[in-house]
Write a protein that binds this DNA or RNA. Structure first.
Length: 538
DNA sequence: GGTTTGACCAATCTTAAAGC
DNA sequence: GCTTTAAGATTGGTCAAACC
């Protein structure tokens, strides 16, 4: 400890409640550790104007702001915690037995004898006042002191509740918190809060509409998480999650349109000029109106498993659509002119060829309608699937958009045959046709593939053959993207009042960045060896 | 000081609709 | 039939504030 010792107290900061001119030359990891009573600090100030002699352990990962003046943005990297959450910590996160003494400790020390670096994050919609933040490291150190003095084990909560204690800003080039000043009393905090209203407005003009929307959603979520009102936080959080999911479905639909050339990517296009780039008079008897930024391959996956034991995969269907092939081809009303460009594969597991579902679903492994089924040994199936989807050794290194109907389930099935789709860098985005249809229909539940095809006017038979289902799923995706383009979803959505419609994902949104799901916590692969789970490269 | 009330949180259960 | 997912409801424990 001694070897890492360093002085931490700067007398210049001690005698004023607020120091808004320039932060101490010492990093925050040093200055923020002024966790001794003010009287002691003041005593030192009176004795000498030179740096003090107290020491603290080095914290290599501590928050280390540069010299900051009022209004300057924080550097990239540090995490923040809302000051409101810090003040409410004893009531929200401390158990009954310790709450009283922790509450007393906070009351006596939080705003009387500590110096905090306060930052502010503005609400892009100006619905709320500036969000007051402190660096997470300062609160952690405060808890350490509390634990030392109270002989307790106070900590930042784990899991979802803990996320609010480690907020990051600046993603997608969005604004970062601005420095307000240092405060060591309630009145100082109040003064800085007032002064936060005089901060210059953040420049958001460079943000794409999708980035702006995501930033706004993030700030809204933080504010709603901090609410302690009549409405249950849990209900509020659950609602936010639902809304987010719906918005994500809308963005997914728009990305599909973008990949197909039915929607213009609007990265780095100002929102004013964006409106001119929306299709207004396009008809399905014309080729796709926009040239996609880069061509991609859609690979649709459908997996059939034995109905008595879902771990036993019996068929895998793959359907591939190369957007390069779509150029200059009119899709037709439902995309039927593009359907013939889909390349379909149907693989049956040789050792399980005798298994045919009939109890709960009517399987038809012999009825692949879009080519010739291939028998593949269970030990080779991951390699065969990998060859179609592609990997880092493939000749074609273009991005792959993986598609499925309730795709999460199919991706999990793939892991059970030894192919880990989350370990393939080529796969950059996921499309779920069930979620897409739910988005279009604005319905509460997902619908079956057969029903969706019927609704979209796509004729089909022999469902529950993996090869057929993969083809129908891809057709449904195409038909929905075209239908949505022709219906002019953008114009319709503009009629909704912003903020009142859970389904509206931003009328000037192009779908944003590609998005992959997180891999499942556990995958059922007991019958597969560890080696089998490694993707085989071709 | 004791009781009541409302809020919050976590865990659990139920329901519905898909998948096989 | 079983599994998964999501949403909503219920339950029990805890606590603060209000009330008597």
């Amino acid at each position: 400890m001694a070897s890492n010792a360093r002085p931490y107290w700067n007398s210049e900061d001690s005698d004023d409640d607020i120091n808004i001119s320039m932060i101490s030359k010492a990093p925050a990891s040093i200055q923020s550790l002024s966790f001794f009573p003010v009287s002691a600090q003041q005593e030192r100030t009176r004795i000498s104007s030179t740096a003090p002699l107290c020491t603290l352990p080095s914290t290599s990962d501590a928050f280390k702001p540069l010299r900051l003046e009022f209004g300057e943005v924080s550097e990239e990297g540090p995490t923040f915690v809302p000051f409101k959450l810090v003040r409410g910590y004893p009531g929200r996160y401390v158990g009954r037995s310790n709450q009283k003494k922790v509450f007393e400790f906070f009351k006596e020390t939080l705003l009387k004898n500590r110096v905090w670096d306060l930052f502010a994050q503005s609400d892009p919609t100006a619905k709320h006042g500036p969000l007051l933040l402190i660096p997470t490291i300062q609160f952690e150190q405060f808890l350490n002191i509390a634990n030392h003095q109270l002989d307790g084990e106070l900590a930042i909560p784990q899991g979802r509740a803990g996320e609010l204690f480690s907020l990051t800003f600046g993603e997608w080039d969005t604004p970062r918190p601005r420095f307000l000043g240092r405060a060591n009393s309630a009145s100082a905090v109040d003064s800085l809060r007032e002064r936060a209203h005089t901060l210059p407005a953040d420049d958001l003009s460079h943000l794409t509409p999708s980035c702006y929307q995501m930033y706004q959603d993030k700030i809204d979520e933080i504010y709603s998480s901090l609410k302690i009102g009549k409405k249950s936080n849990k209900l509020e959080a659950a609602k936010n999650k639902r809304v987010q999911k719906k918005k994500d479905s809308g963005r997914m639909l728009k990305r599909v349109q973008r990949y197909l050339g039915l929607r213009q990517a609007i990265s780095h296009v100002s929102s004013n000029s964006y409106r001119g780039l929306v299709t207004t008079s396009w008809g399905s008897q014309k080729p796709a109106p926009f040239k996609p930024k880069e061509s991609v391959r859609f690979v649709c996956v459908d997996v059939e498993a034995y109905e008595e034991d879902a771990r036993v995969v019996t068929e895998i269907g793959l359907a591939v659509l190369d957007t390069e092939d779509l150029i200059d081809i009119c899709p037709g009303e439902r995309g039927e002119n593009w359907f013939s460009l889909v390349q379909a594969y149907h693989f049956r597991i040789e050792e399980r060829r005798y298994i045919v579902n009939s109890k709960f679903v009517q399987g038809c492994p012999e009825a692949f309608d879009f080519g010739k089924s291939q028998m593949v040994s269970i030990k080779d199936i991951n390699k065969v699937v990998g060859k179609v989807i592609g990997d880092k050794n493939s000749e074609d290194q273009r991005p792959v958009i993986i598609v499925g109907h309730d795709i999460r389930q199919d991706l999990k099935y793939l892991t059970s045959i030894g192919y880990n789709p989350w370990g393939v860098p080529l796969i950059v985005d996921e499309v779920d046709t069930q979620a897409m249809f739910q988005r279009i229909e604005r319905g509460p539940n997902g619908r079956s593939l057969a029903l969706i095809c019927a609704e979209l006017g796509i004729p089909g038979c022999n469902y529950h053959n993996a090869g057929n289902d993969a083809v129908y799923t891809l057709r449904a995706m195409i038909a929905m993207a075209i239908k949505r383009t022709i219906d002019g979803s953008d114009r319709k959505e503009e009629s909704f009042t912003p903020g009142t419609d859970e389904w509206t994902d931003g009328d000037m949104d192009d779908g944003g960045c590609s998005k992959r799901s997180a891999p499942p916590a556990e995958t059922y692969c007991a019958h597969q060896s560890k080696d089998e789970l490694q993707n085989v490269q071709w």
